[in-house]
Amino acid sequence: MATIQISVKDEVVKWRRYLHENPELSFQEVQTSEYVYNLLKTFSGLEVTRPTKTSVLGVLKGGKQSSEKQLTIAFRADMDALPIQEEANIEFRSKNPGVMHACGHDAHTAMLLGAAKVLSEKRDEIGGEIRFIFQHAEEMPPGGAIELVEKGVVEGVDYAFALHVTPYERSGSICMREGVLCASNDDFEIKVIGYGGHASTPELTVDPIAVGVEIASNIQHIVSRKLPALNSPVISITQFHGGSALNIIPETVVLGGTIRAIDPDIRIKAKNYVNQIVKGITEAHGARYEIVWHEGYESVVNDKEAVRITREVAEGIFRKENVIHVEEPLFGGEDFSAIAQKVPSSMQFIGVHHEDFGEAHPLHHPKFKIDEAALQYGVDYFVGIATELCCK
């Protein structure tokens, strides 16, 4: 099994810290992609291109000839950050106010850069082709992955692989699941339009706050009363805005939320029920409504054979006892689904927590941080997969 060299390990940490200090939001990864592009250009044997304005593709064509079928595989890392003000107690905190790598995409990018460097130095031992996809805009639907798929980045690819960090497992472990890994995600915005007036005469108004509260309450009944318990989605109301004075019933209120579903049929049913509830309640009270849907990502579905490959590699790197089987799908969304729909794929979660951190802050938290020792495992994982599939 290939192992990372100490010099590369140090570089991976350096790259990750630079990226962490200089985060950029989705579709704005100009400096990030330029940094990745320039680094890849220094690695021997890589063909480096820019499929989109803020993404990078490195292609390594192996120099080893074989009579057997040679595979084309792809590794993907996302590069964008989140609109969060960092509060983590680290020396290399974000220099961009209100922007933070709170989802570990800096680590994803650094690990794949490390793998690209190691594998570029092994070019003569590699048969087939390896594509290193550095993707923009995972955090903002419609996402960067679908754009790269449309650009043909995964055309002819036999298998695709990705890692995502998880703060809930310690560094040196990896979480694996076959089949559905992540949920689909659809967001909604509901404007309730009533008839405002003085708070002392509510009978002369159509109170959008009262109507909005009823909508929010009834949406919760979709999961508990309208859909099967064993296949229920998660539906959350996350915003409720309205009113500007204590003695005025406003003209409008706005509600917002999200639906996360594993089953595509349940996803459609849940959306239909939201539409029905909003329409029925507003009409019953003489109000009007506008509803806007922001359709998100499909579910990430891991291919059986691709997972078998990654599990065997993981057991060699992390040891079998540190390869954790994930029992249930996760309800977070991931746009790697666009790639997994086109290519047999395996996306898994690598542990990045250290006991010295104390409490494990979740993804998208302002105090989120990772144990950088996990970066070595991530590089070795990608190199191990390439060695297994392209170095025989």
Rank of each mutant, 00 (worst) to 15 (best):
S224W: 03
P167Q: 11
L227R: 00
F240H: 11
T252M: 05
S224C: 05
T238Y: 14
G144T: 03
I249E: 15
Y159I: 15
L163C: 10
V192K: 00
V165N: 10
E147L: 07
V149L: 07
V211W: 08
G156C: 14
V180Q: 08
A162C: 06
P142D: 08
I174N: 09
E155G: 13
A162T: 08
L227K: 00
A210S: 06
M140S: 12
V149Y: 09
C175K: 07
N247E: 14
A116V: 05
E251M: 02
H164G: 09
S236I: 12
P208C: 05
G196N: 03
G152P: 10
V223F: 04
R170W: 10
T201G: 08
S171E: 11
S217G: 11
S173Y: 13
E129G: 11
I237M: 15
I219L: 13
D207V: 01
V180L: 06
G144L: 05
H221A: 12
V192W: 00
N185F: 06
P202K: 02
E121D: 13
E189K: 06
A199I: 10
G243W: 00
G243K: 03
E251R: 02
S236Y: 11
F188Y: 15
S120K: 01
E169L: 10
V149H: 07
L119K: 00
P202T: 06
D158C: 10
R177S: 11
L148M: 04
G143N: 07
G128T: 14
N231S: 13
D158Y: 11
M176G: 15
I262W: 00
F161C: 02
G196T: 04
H221M: 11
L227S: 01
V254K: 06
G143W: 02
A162N: 03
G156V: 12
H136R: 04
K151L: 06
H241Q: 06
E129K: 12
G144Y: 04
Q220R: 14
S120N: 00
P208E: 02
R123M: 10
G143F: 04
F161N: 01
A183V: 09
S232P: 03
A199V: 08
K117F: 07
S171L: 12
G196Q: 03
H198C: 15
A199R: 09
T252G: 01
V253Y: 05
I248L: 15
I237T: 15
V157S: 03
A229C: 08
T205W: 02
P250H: 02
E121G: 06
P202A: 05
I126E: 01
P141I: 02
G127V: 14
E251G: 07
S224M: 03
G127C: 14
E214Q: 04
A115W: 04
T252F: 02
I219M: 13
A137D: 05
D186A: 08
I262M: 01
